[in-house]
Amino acid sequence: MGLGALLLVLTLLLPGRPSSSAFAWTAFRDPAGVTCEALSYNNTSLRCSWEALRPATVRLHLRQKGELGANCSSREVRSGRGPSWVLMDSCPSACSSAAEETPMELEVEAGGNGGQHQRLSRSLLWRDLVKPAAPEGLWAHQEERSGQVRLRWAPPGSWDRPASFFPLRFHLHLEYFGNLDKGLLQDLYSDRLEETTEPLRPHQILRRAKVRCQDPVTGSAWGPWSGWALPSEATPLP
């Protein structure tokens, strides 16, 4: 079990309530409760989200683990049923490099209208939380004579520099026109900011393209897709 896994789930027994109903009460749809993400290694906040089964007051406390662990930030949210999220300030002393050794700890307490409580505790390493935002400025162009498709894009604006120290892997998804406008799909993977490719079949016409990215060093989750980019007739500046 990794450090980012759930470490403790505790449902409090309340006076005058049978244990069967107390242990049956849970606030979150996902057993892990709350999931946190960061847009980059140098970001100063975490986006923590959850899916609530029922209305509850959710309190979140983030602190640095260890004997001298400091309290970093706290939030209290009145959550209804469905998805909710909140921004948490990160710990100032948190190391965000691959050599990170001291984790942060997130404590979550959910309270129901009837006095029920659920508590969860998770250890978090920053490198496990990084999920890059969508790449920007995707440009696509198909050469009229050769049919080659040229693509260019930029890293997310929130991503760390220099790129040589904070590399990204990109996943491009291309859709071509087909019979009855049913798209034919092509997937490309790249460590660069531009690619040239051939259509899947001769004389295919590019319909649209999109791109997403991940951190290849830590094998982070893939970030969200960019919006669809339509083929451009103009040639971009170098």
Rank of each mutant, 00 (worst) to 15 (best):
S158T: 14
Q204E: 15
P224M: 13
C48N: 07
D160R: 11
F23P: 00
G66A: 01
H203E: 15
P31R: 12
W50V: 04
E105Q: 08
L180P: 02
D160K: 12
T57H: 00
C213K: 11
H61Q: 06
Y41V: 03
W85C: 05
A234I: 08
L180N: 13
G69I: 00
W225C: 13
N42M: 08
P216G: 15
P103Y: 06
E37I: 14
V86R: 08
H203F: 15
S121M: 08
T102P: 00
G183R: 14
S158Q: 06
P156V: 08
F177V: 10
R201S: 12
G69M: 00
A94W: 12
G147L: 02
L14G: 11
L193Y: 13
F166N: 09
G183Q: 14
P156T: 03
L10T: 14
R78A: 08
W225N: 05
L6P: 02
H171L: 12
A154V: 00
P31G: 09
L12C: 15
W222T: 06
Q148H: 10
H203K: 15
S90D: 12
K210H: 11
S84H: 12
S93C: 00
W139T: 11
L120H: 00
G114A: 15
P162A: 07
G66L: 02
G114P: 06
Q214A: 15
G157V: 03
P83R: 01
G112I: 03
S123H: 09
E51Y: 07
P132Q: 01
P55Q: 01
A99I: 07
R145S: 09
K210P: 02
G183C: 14
N43Q: 14
L8H: 06
V9I: 06
S40F: 01
E175F: 05
A22N: 09
N113L: 12
N179P: 12
R122E: 06
E198I: 12
L237C: 08
A234Y: 10
E107D: 05
S74H: 07
E109H: 08
L206A: 03
R150P: 02
E233M: 04
K210L: 05
L39I: 04
E51Q: 07
P236E: 07
G66W: 00
P216R: 14
A140M: 02
C48I: 02
T57W: 05
E107G: 04
L174I: 10
R161N: 14
C213T: 09
A154H: 12
E67S: 08
L46P: 04
W85G: 10
P238L: 09
A133N: 08
L6D: 14
Q118R: 07
S232K: 05
L68W: 03
R201E: 15
A229Q: 05
S232Y: 05
L106G: 04
A52E: 03
S74N: 06
C91Q: 05
G137D: 02
L12T: 15
A229R: 10
A70M: 08
S164E: 13
F165A: 13
G2N: 06
S123F: 06
C95E: 14
G112C: 01
L206H: 03
I205C: 11
R127C: 09
R119F: 15
P167R: 06
